[in-house]
Design a protein around this nucleic acid. Structure first.
Lengths: 191, 191
DNA sequence: GTAAAATATAAGACAAGTCATATATCGAGG
DNA sequence: CCTCGATATATGACTTGTCTTATATTTTAC
């Protein structure tokens, strides 16, 4: 359901091809919504079928067929409804890393510390990645979408990016405090 | 893949039935891993097939068949590997609420404020729920699992719960600051 | 000039998760 | 006594998402 809504969102900026959409998802939404290429094309098909988008076919130099899709009035309506009617399920995600934290007590104390260190390392890499891409992706995003930096649609994208860094950072801090707790307990037992 | 790992995690505490597992998921993991009843039973079947768990069938009063499953050595190994070898994909979740924030710039300024207020309201409800269940679920969890409060497995469950409240709270704070930004911009334009 | 990388779309097979429905027992309340 | 809610398991149909492979062109680098 939601990949389709995401596609409608991008197409509300300007008409795009499946390939363009894949690039945009990768550069701006990959950390909270990985988009599979095969599914993008299948979603486009479905959206055309229900009248939310329509095709404007370009035959680029008579050989490469690049299919550009544009959002319809109906599609805009669907998108608007999705944005303005939040559902509880929109906030409940499948988070393996949390299930792992939840179950980490099944490990020995030392292994649990190893587990936390490994999660911290992984998160560090993710934060670094988001930071590195901060400037770079933003301009690529601006170029591909044609949005100016002070466009509210651009700013909204920046907010989401900011949350990515903040939430990973906050989680890393929590892990550090849990680690300290566990180490403190260990010391207690030794005394 | 991950529901199976979650099931292995619960079964590493003690042998349980599909019904028990459903209750445990609901009371302790629902906000980060909603478990569908049908899928629990299908996962159990699969786990038995690959030798990660085994059945100990009880015929309660000759009529109600309650199937209790226990984790095997192989299952414990699988669980341990999953916990100790974190993958990048474990940290990348499908988050509709973030996609919505990302795309919210497509709305008019007033509608975007409405959108933020509605997300805030929804999150307020979720935080309240987590807080309410804090004591209540913990004891239900302790009773069902038979874990004592100072068991590390119990403590790990509490950490995950704590993160739920903290992350929702942090996100709500971010939304408030975004809202303030948007309102400030609006004022700028009026001057 | 040619090999590799990027552009561009698509189908097949499968895994994972959701929703609805079916079945059957048991205990509690009216 | 009988309905309702809880206990308990299971199947079917479906949606969503992933992974692999195929095809064909164009641009870039050596």
């Amino acid at each position: 359901m939601s990949l389709e809504n995401g596609i409608l969102g991008y197409l509300s900026i300007k008409p795009l091809s499946g390939y363009d959409l894949k690039k945009l998802f990768n550069m701006s939404a990959a950390y909270f919504w990985p988009a599979d290429q095969a599914q993008i094309y299948r979603s486009l098909k479905k959206l055309v079928a229900d009248g939310s988008i329509e095709l404007t076919e370009y035959s680029h130099g008579e050989t490469v067929n690049k299919k550009i899709y544009a959002i319809t009035a109906k599609g805009r309506e669907t998108l608007r409804d999705w944005l303005l009617v939040p559902k509880r399920s929109d906030f409940i995600t499948h988070a393996p890393y949390l299930m792992q934290l939840f179950l980490s007590g099944a490990l020995s104390r030392d292994e649990q510390i190893t587990f936390i260190d490994r999660q911290l390392k992984e998160i560090g890499g993710l934060i670094q990645r988001l930071r590195d891409n901060y400037i770079e992706n933003k301009s690529a995003f601006a170029v591909t979408t044609g949005l100016s930096k002070d466009d509210r649609r651009f700013e909204a994208a920046v907010y989401a990016h900011r949350w990515g860094i903040l939430s990973y950072q906050t989680y890393a801090n929590l892990l550090e405090s849990i680690k300290a707790d566990i180490l403190a307990e260990k010391d207690d037992q030794r005394e």
